[in-house]
Design a protein around this nucleic acid. Sequence first.
DNA 1: TTTTTTGCAAAACCTTTGCAGTTGG
DNA 2: CCAACTGCAAAGGTTTTGCAAAAAA
Lengths: 152, 152
Amino acid sequence: VETVSEALAVLRRHGLRASSARRLVLEALVAADGPVSAERIAAGLDGDVPASDLASVYRNLEAFEQLGLVRHVHLGHGPGLYALADRTGREYLACERCDRVRIVDAAELDEVRDVVRARFGFEARFTHFPIVGLCPDCAERVAGPETGGHRE
Amino acid sequence: VETVSEALAVLRRHGLRASSARRLVLEALVAADGPVSAERIAAGLDGDVPASDLASVYRNLEAFEQLGLVRHVHLGHGPGLYALADRTGREYLACERCDRVRIVDAAELDEVRDVVRARFGFEARFTHFPIVGLCPDCAERVAGPETGGHRE
DNA sequence: TTTTTTGCAAAACCTTTGCAGTTGG
DNA sequence: CCAACTGCAAAGGTTTTGCAAAAAA
């Protein structure tokens, strides 16, 4: 499901209505170049699409997630970021020092998942909450200069 | 740093004052049997220690983290949970379906860290944000019955 | 005494909810 | 027509901030 009309078809198939508010949210998700906050969707992606009501955006994102059309990820302490589920084969590694995010294909983390599964019987997913730690740059900076200095 | 007086010594060494509000927060952290929310600390751990002001608790926890005395972890969508840093050799695996949390020694995740480091040069830490996924029970329940049903 | 810290109140931030009115089917 | 949905406003949960009063050094 990569287009607005495909998504609307899914809605109808589930007995939900294809309202204009929903169209707007879907248009924003299609237009977005990455995961976006509900606030930015409501703001019409800063003018790229018409603005809409924030509460409705949240309600509709929730509905879309229930249908499997949309997913959200929590990167750091900020708001949740939403994207079309079909664009979410990706998983995330977030640096807690510089807040940069590395996006990788899910397959690249299979080995990690395998280790976690083997050790703990636990099925790790890094789609909703990322792997958090230090990116290569920050890891070096922390290991090298001095061991002092504390992060948030 | 495992006791209140050790912690207070660290404060003084850094030019911070050993106020009674700070003592209270430290007492709560020492008395706690695991990571606790700021709210529970302010509530005096439900009567185990004297209650105090929530805003000050947050301010002081923040100060303690800056000094490396305290750390917090985000398990799921609830409030952050705080613990003495010295008790934080543990790391977390959180089930996003049933919200149970498996606590493991950091060493048990070294293999996972190694794989992540080898592949991405990324230094993963599961102390601040846990590994999130499905615990063995929930993984089975999802794989078995039907593949349908969508999570939050 | 003077600088830090407190306690309270208020706000900020993200998200959810209640409800009267509107709309899609 | 009628259930589903919207927009607005208000509240909920967590954390931060402003400020005058209090307490540490």
